[in-house]
Nucleic acid binder design. Structure first.
Lengths: 358, 358
DNA sequence: GCCAACATTGTTAGCGTTAACAGAACCGGC
DNA sequence: GCCGGTTCTGTTAACGCTAACAATGTTGGC
């Protein structure tokens, strides 16, 4: 039988054309040694002539390895998740893995279970969850989902390996920077409290104030959106109007900082002359705001690379026979932390001279 | 043989536990009719007990359908592509398809060929390319890549089905809006000229000026980044200093508009009192800039939905026997256009009174 | 020239599923 | 009670590939 022109060619077609067995074709395709150079060339010619591509499905079936990794994310259009995802994607491709991505619409246990199911259906070999939310981590740890599973920004106590940016340190550096500029205290507009990142940034802010012996004002709670930054900015202006000293604000992300800048501008307050503002994320436009925003940069590409490496390590560990090194017990889930870096620009400046009205 | 605790269970294990043949299990799993309710229940119990999941690889091998669609994108961290991707992802999941995504680092034929190969390796059934760049479309149309293939923002003449936002109309509306406010002409900061979107927006800008009988100043060429917006803003200010009338600027995206606002602010020019600015994209922070930015919104979710539908249509068309309707010849590649919508905010206002110095 | 060792190739048997066909059990009408 | 037609279930054979083994050359040392 000649190869059907309708069907795409299979190994047997190549084998027939090259005058060898299909196994020899397999050996050539997989770069096995012990194939005569002349044979390799002949097979290669046949492959080119037919436009043959190895059927990954059949290969996966017999090798029991799909080479697919899953990624669970919440909202891939947000700056952080999008960057992290891009980092993972690049690292995965370099490592020869394919990626299957699920974006969650909500973090309910049902939604998470559905997403996990979607990935299991595809026989992913392992999974990375970009899981910055408390509820998501809970749901993931509870579901008998795909393993191994690595949590990015996952928080502790989940029993999962975690890769995260040192949010608390970044926040601490930002606040410390403001205190060094002479501000007596620093206000805070936090992110959505359901997010672990919001919590870590609050913690870093609070620690820096404590270390400086400064009182921590009640934080204003936003939800990451520019709108909430704007609204919290107006509240802050109200506070100021009642006589409270407001000379510096640490905002949990750049988008909210943009909203805050808008609110301050509307109220006729100058940045940094009247109030200093520091953001978090270092979005590309931060440098071009009015004024250019002091902020904290995260190396998302590295987070992606590291989390993939952790996942591949876990995959490798799973292959080793259990109990081989039984004396040491199961190794604890690793927790890798990527540093954050302060970028000082013009939105932060020295504290203004004390208000003569007071 | 009892099911090995190491291996995950297969149909045969379920069949043994339920006391039926594996084929009956298959029927239950696939929801075939003609299975007795009592049998279905027994099989379902066995499935639950063993935690059985159908092996999608084996299924794909025999059905010759992987249920995987490929997406080729250039930079998924940019606003437009990220939104489009999210739209496609959601639509694909709803349609029961999996997605495999490749982010290109460069649009060279070699890079594109590699990406295409990556998708072919995975036996994708079809492909969507988020291909806003001229070189990318060229490379894609040339490569004997995966088919069917739908191009998002792909431009014409490629012979591929295309889904795109009506960039030219959006740009036209933006410029028209400025003219209606009394501006005698509108300057333009364009995007990277390698991008088709940049070209369409230039075309829309030019047409609106022509229709109004206004002269079109030389456009300033940016590259979408806030930095280039800033730099082109400074050039614009130079033009103004030489006596050229610059009262309104249409900027090809919001990020560059942010850079422009910064440049204008530095130069002491007020928006919109001295100069009106209109952007494109309607990023979430546009509403909270100083001043809130008039811009053009694109419905990326709809682009995602529509492009998936076009792809599925093409898939369906491929299944039908060729020549069945031979008289009409092959149907032309469809070209679907999603409208864009102007969002008027405060960065655009009436033209200032003519400069008394002139 | 013979044997061991190696290099090279072919043969066979799955991987876990679905499709196609083949039986078996059951139904109502005569 | 027997028949045609359902309804349900089981058997067998792919899908395209790799692993394991078997069977050939091919080489080199004596």
């Amino acid at each position: 039988m000649t190869p059907q022109s309708g069907r795409s060619p299979v190994m047997a077609d190549v084998a027939r054309l090259a005058g060898v067995s299909h196994q020899t074709v397999s050996r050539v395709v997989n770069g096995h040694p012990n194939v005569r150079a002349e044979t390799t060339a002949r097979v290669q010619r046949a492959i080119d002539e037919l436009g043959y591509h190895r059927n990954s499905t059949a290969r996966a079936l017999v090798t029991r390895r799909t080479n697919v990794l899953g990624v669970i994310a919440f909202d891939t259009t947000l700056f952080g998740p999008a960057q992290t995802l891009a980092g993972i994607e690049r690292a995965a491709r370099e490592a020869g893995y394919f990626l299957s991505i699920v974006s969650l619409d909500d973090v309910s246990p049902a939604g998470v279970a559905e997403a996990v199911d979607y990935l299991i259906q595809q026989s992913v070999e392992g999974c990375i969850a970009i899981a910055p939310q408390r509820a998501l981590v809970r749901a993931l740890a509870a579901v008998p989902g795909p393993r191994p599973l690595v949590a990015v920004e996952g928080g502790e106590g989940s029993g999962l390996p975690v890769v995260c940016v040192d949010q608390a340190q970044g926040a601490h550096d930002a606040v410390r920077h403001l205190i060094d500029l002479g501000h007596r205290t620093v206000h805070h507009i936090s992110g959505d409290p359901e997010w672990l990142e919001a919590e870590s940034r609050v913690a870093g802010w609070r620690r820096a104030l404590e270390e400086a012996g400064a009182a921590a004002p009640e934080p204003l709670v936003g939800d990451w959106s520019p709108r909430s930054g704007y609204e919290m900015g107006r509240r802050l202006i109200q506070r100021r109007a009642t006589g409270e000293e407001v000379t510096a604000v640490f905002v949990a992300n750049d988008q909210m900082a943009i909203g805050l800048l808008r609110a301050l501008g509307e109220a006729g307050l100058r940045v940094p002359d009247d109030i200093s503002v520091v953001g978090f994320d270092d979005v590309p436009e931060a440098e071009f705001l009015a004024p250019p925003l002091t902020t904290v940069a995260q190396d998302f590409a590295q987070v992606g690379r590291v989390s993939l490496r952790v996942l591949l390590d876990e995959l490798g560990a799973g292959e080793r026979p259990a109990g081989e090194d039984a004396a040491s017990g199961p190794p604890p889930a690793p927790r890798l932390i990527v540093p954050a870096r302060l970028r000082v620009r013009q939105s932060s400046g020295p504290a203004p001279a004390p208000d003569p009205h007071r």
